[in-house]
Design a protein around this nucleic acid. Structure first.
Lengths: 157, 157
DNA sequence: CTTGATGCAAAGGATTTGCACAAAT
DNA sequence: ATTTGTGCAAATCCTTTGCATCAAG
C-alpha cells in the first residue's frame, strides 16, 4: 500500500473511523486522478468494486470533514479533489464558459498573491479564514480564437 | 419608474425580450435588497404578485445572461445579486461555517489586490476572464469567540 | 462481538421543462 | 397577430437518509 494511503488510514483510525475497502478505493481514485472529480465520476472510476453512489457521497463527506479532500461547488454540481498532502493544496480554478472545462491555475506567483489577499482579508475583517475558493470564469486559450467548440449548447442559447 | 429600472427595461427590449411586470417585480426586489438572495427568497419578496418559482428562475437565468445579476453558488444553493450598475460590481464573499451567514468583504484595498490577481491570471494563462468569484470560508468575528451560535447544526455534526 | 459502514430504494430539495393560456410588442 | 412569457405540475438531477445487513476493529 502506498505511503499516502497509510497516512490516510491512520488519519481515519485516529478519528474513530474504519478504513474500509470502499474508502480505500475511493481514496485511490482521487489520488490517482490528480484532478477534481464529481461524485458520479468517482463512482465510475471504482465501478469494478460495485460501490453505491451513497457510499461515495458518504465517504466524500467524511474525507471533506477530515480535510483530506476539498469540495468545490459549481453551479449545481460538486467536485472533489485532494487537499491533504497534495502538491498544490491551494490553487485557483478557471472555468471556460464555452467548453465548460475547468482548469487549475497554478503559478507560484499567483498563489502567493492569493495567500496575501487571504491574510489581508483576515486581519482587515477580524475573521478567521479556514478555507478559500477562487474561481475565474471566461474563455480558455483554446476557445478564445475558435468559433466552433466541443460544447455548442452554451453558444446557441 | 426609477432610472435603473428604465435602463434594465431598455436592456431587455434591445435584446428582444419583453419587459413584463413579473420581470419588473423581480428586478425591483433585487434592487431594493442590496444583497444576495436565493430564488426562493426572491419569490417570497414578490409573493404579493403571485409569481411562480419557475418564473423567478427563468427571469434570473435571463438576467444572469444579460449580465444584470451575478449568480454565486454555495454548497448547493445559488444566490443572485445585482451586478450591473451596482456600486460594488466586484467583491469578495465570506461565509461563516458556524452561523452560515454570508458577508461581503468590501475594501478598496482588497478589491484592488483582487483585480490585480485577476489581471495577472489572465495574462499568465492566456485566457480571457469575464467574471470571477472569491469565497472565503471560516469563522466570522461574532462566532470567533462564542461557544454557542444561532445555528448549532454545524457544530454538533 | 460491537459499532460503524454499506447497499438499496425512497425521500428531499433545488432547478428545469412541457404545455396550454395570457400578455407584451 | 405574433411571439414571448407565465403558471402549474411533473420531471430531473444531485444529494441525503432509513433500514436491514455486513464487515472492521
Amino acid at each position: 500500500m502506498e505511503n499516502d494511503l497509510i497516512m490516510f488510514k491512520n488519519l481515519l483510525l485516529q478519528n474513530g473511523y474504519k478504513f474500509t475497502s470502499s474508502r480505500k478505493h475511493i481514496l485511490k481514485a482521487i489520488l490517482n486522478s490528480g484532478t477534481h472529480l464529481s461524485a458520479k465520476e468517482i463512482c465510475e472510476k471504482v465501478k469494478e468494486y460495485h460501490l453505491g453512489l451513497a457510499t461515495v457521497y458518504r465517504a466524500l463527506k467524511l474525507f471533506n470533514k477530515l480535510g483530506i479532500v476539498k469540495e468545490i461547488t459549481l453551479s449545481d454540481r460538486s467536485y472533489y479533489e485532494l487537499k491533504l498532502f497534495s502538491k498544490n493544496p491551494l490553487h485557483i480554478h478557471f472555468k471556460c464558459f464555452k467548453c465548460n472545462s475547468i482548469i487549475d491555475i497554478d503559478s507560484q506567483d499567483l498563489n502567493l498573491d492569493y495567500l496575501k489577499l487571504s491574510k489581508k482579508a483576515e486581519t482587515e475583517n477580524n475573521v478567521e479564514i479556514y478555507d478559500s475558493n477562487i474561481m475565474f470564469v471566461g474563455l480558455c486559450s483554446k476557445c478564445k480564437g475558435e468559433v466552433k467548440c466541443q460544447d455548442e449548447q452554451n453558444l446557441e442559447e
